[in-house]
Amino acid sequence: MWDFSGKVLFLDRADINTDEIIAAKYLTEITRAALQPHLFEDIKLDGFQGQDDIAGKSVIITRANFGCGSSREHAPWALEVNGIHLVVAESFARIFRQNMFNCGMLAVELPAATIDHLFQSYAHQQTTVTTNLENRVFTIAAGDQKEDIKFSLTDFARALVETGGWVEYADSHY
C-alpha cells in the first residue's frame, strides 16, 4: 500500500479528461513505465509547465469531473508511474474513479467549498499532504499554515486500497 502523502500539484480546471491525462497515441504502449514522460502532455491549462510541474509531486488537487472521457486505465497508470497515488477533487468521472481504486490508488471527493478553500489557501505555494487512512483524514500544510481535512471512504474501498486492488480482492473473494 502506498502512503498517499507528499507534495501537491494543483490543477485549477474542471472536466480534465483522460485524453489530456494521457494522449491516445500512447495507448499503443504495453508497459506502464513507457507512459511516464507523457502525463498531461496535451492538457489545456494556462501556465502549466509540464514535467517541471509534475516532478516530485505525489498528490493532485483539482476541480469537478476529473478523468472524464475515455475509459483508458492508462490515465491512472500515467499518474501512478509518476508517483501520484492520491487525487483530491470535487468529483470524478465514474470509470476513472473506479480505475483508481481498482489499482489500489486513492480518489477523494470533497465539497466544492472545501476545494475552493484549498485552492485559495494553498495553490500559490509549495504544499504537502499527509494522509492517515485509518482515520480518513489528511493534513495539508504549507509554510506555517496547516489543517486537517476529513474525507469519507467505504470499508470496501479501503479494502481495495489495502489489498492493492480489485484483481486480488476479486480472485480471493469470488
Binding site: E73, I95, Q98, N102, C103, V167, A170, D171
Partner: peptide, 19 residues
Amino acid sequence: GVGTTDLEVGILKGICAFH
C-alpha cells in the same frame, strides 16, 4: 465501459462491481 483492471477481473471471473 470499464478500465483494464475491471476488464481483467471480467475475463478471469465473469463479474464486475458497480454502484
